[in-house]
């Protein structure tokens, strides 16, 4: 029997999440793993927007910033528990994506890229300048999520890095499951159809502004949740999270691994998160490498690493 892409992806992801810790030489690696998962969550959102619907966003770090600062400021300014603050951040991101997306998504190509880029930069500018609320460029402390204490009171004591590794891993799995469900659903087909030919999608009845807006809002929620998780596990956040470079990194992760494939994009997030960690002695070359990867992948493997590799394997098999 052949496994569907969905089951195979979820199975492989789950196996990787459970099995890799057996090879971790120190607790530090749990932190790196959790970072991979958090980036994976944000990138899965971009799979829906860019991979399925073919719309680019160079401003999704803005939503990560909204999610991160919601979880930081909710407890201090609104006396909300951190867990509710995460949800508030997601709702706020969805609302902002809805309001901004309506006009922005009428744009195409370069204009959409620049408009989203501008949006992201505006968010990071507000976060850095409104220091009375956000703590300004120096950043702000983030409260403890509290879930770890809850687990401990139930008898499951986890060290912070282990907890965050496991928790981010579970959220990533859920995120991947939702995105894979969408792929093979009526909405997912409508998105992929408009990616293939916008005019043909319209003539089969796809309400293009409506479905692109849905994709934009969903991907914003993914980025927001990722931002919240990052802030909560670092217990600290600065406006850099909403910065231009993080938006670009997310897009690069997605297209490097393969924006059209959930597994590919998460794989891309993994590689591009691990590389700088593994090659710290090359830190000076980080931008050079990132730029080079972006150019080379788009010239030689437009579909990304994983889909191109799969095509090669299948081509041989047939």
């Amino acid at each position: 029997m052949r496994l569907s892409t969905k089951s195979a992806t979820l199975l492989v992801l789950a196996l990787l999440i459970v099995a890799t810790p057996f090879f971790f030489p120190s607790a530090y690696y749990y932190r790196v793993g959790a970072l991979v998962f958090v980036n994976g969550i944000a990138v899965t959102g971009l799979v829906i927007l860019t991979g399925y619907a073919g719309q680019i966003s160079l401003g999704h770090a803005g939503f990560a910033g909204i999610g991160a600062y919601a979880s930081a400021l909710g407890p201090t300014h609104l006396s909300l528990p951190p867990s509710l603050s995460v949800l508030l951040g997601a709702a706020l991101s969805a609302l902002i994506a809805f309001l901004v997306g309506r006009p922005i998504l009428r744009l195409k190509g370069y204009y959409l890229a620049v408009a989203t880029l501008g949006f992201g930069i505006l968010v990071s500018m507000v976060l850095a300048n409104e220091s009375g609320i956000t703590g300004g460029p120096d950043g702000v402390q983030v409260a403890e999520l509290g879930l770890r204490d809850l687990l401990a009171s139930l008898g499951l004591k986890l060290k912070a890095p282990v907890f965050w590794y496991a928790f981010s891993g579970v959220v990533l799995l859920v995120g991947a499951w939702l995105a894979l469900n969408l792929y093979d659903s009526p909405t997912g087909r409508a998105l992929r159809a408009l990616h293939g030919s916008e005019v043909a999608a319209k003539t089969v009845g796809v309400d293009v502004p409506r479905v692109t807006l849905q994709a934009f809002v969903i991907s914003a929620v993914y980025a927001s949740v990722a931002g919240s998780l990052l802030a909560l596990q670092n217990r600290f956040v600065t406006p850099d999270i909403a910065g231009y470079m993080y938006s670009i990194e997310l897009v690069t992760m997605a297209v490097f691994g393969g924006a059209g494939s959930v597994f590919g994009a998460i794989f891309g997030a993994g590689i591009l998160t691990l590389l700088p960690q593994a090659l710290t002695f090359l830190a000076e070359y980080e931008q050079l490498m990132l730029g080079l990867i972006m150019v080379l992948v788009m010239i030689f493997m437009r579909e990304g690493l994983v889909p191109s590799a799969l095509r090669l394997i299948r081509g041989r098999g047939a």
Partner: peptide, 30 residues
């Protein structure tokens, strides 16, 4: 104007869009 990256079957299912469309939440939650 074909949806190149989709299968032949998916192209025609997409043609049924008006009959198959529904809540995006139901779609994501399968």
């Amino acid at each position: 104007q074909i949806f190149q990256q989709m299968t032949v079957l998916e192209n025609v299912i997409a043609g049924h869009h008006l009959h198959e469309r529904g809540s995006v939440f139901a779609d994501m939650l399968h």
